[in-house]
Amino acid sequence: MEIFLQYLIAGITNGATYALVALGLTLLVGVARLVNFAHGDFFMLGGYLLVFLFVDKEIPYLLSIVITLIVMLILGLLFERIVVHPTINKTWREQLVATLATSIILSNVAILFWGTTPRLAPTKLSLTILRLGPITISSHRFVVFFVAVISFIALSFFTKNTKIGKAMRAASQNRDACLIYGINVNFVSLVTVTISTMMSGLAGVIITPLYNVSPTVGSVMTLKALTSVVMGGLGNTTGAIISAFILGIVEALFSGYVSSQYQDVASFVIMILILVFRPHGMFGKKVGI
């Protein structure tokens, strides 16, 4: 039972990370109708930037996070202008090739800068192990969980209470209608892509004190986020978050009881099963975010 709880806690915090990444992806899918194969690579870059700033340059943790987020914001803007905007009205094939090309560019740029050796950014908190009876948890897991929850609340507040946030929801529910009311879809898409990129990067930043980051982690993360998004129903934010937590927990249990080496396979299998048997997700059909 203790060991089960231990896995469960790991699963929930990993799920929180996946949820951050998946939430960014589902926003993008909902608003821009674009599946971004480079989404996980922004997670990877977030992790590396933290390692670079915090470990290599010894910049304080919080400041490192702020700098990383600013860099992610700039990357998000560039990504929207260079990749998303030119392909937004093209077919899935062009979007696939363009975002996949971006993914390969980003992961190989990471190789050029940081090599292929996995890196970790341990912090004081991540090295502080809490003992709750027989269970041991790194205190950083609480940070992960709370940052994720705060991000969900902030995003929800943003989409429900700001004009541009509401326009994001409008664009995801009925893109054609936006034209009729003069909603600037271009600007909405720019904001969405930037938020999406920043969320993916933030996930990388908060998890790298616990797990290694390596250049190839991007495509694996993209697939996990995709799995959550498809499970949740394309564009359904709540569905994506719940699915990401389920995925994190299933993976942690699989890793604990079956095989840690093949942990990722569990999520790929889930993805394929969902695609084949529940292509509209686990929570019924719903339009938009």
């Binding site: 509401k166 929801r169 409008a170 009925n174 054609d176 209608a177 009729i180 938009g288």
Partner: peptide
């Protein structure tokens, strides 16, 4: 006001 639905159903 075009033909067909042009509102935002989940808002």
């Amino acid at each position: 006001v075009p033909q067909g639905r042009c509102n935002f159903p989940n808002m």
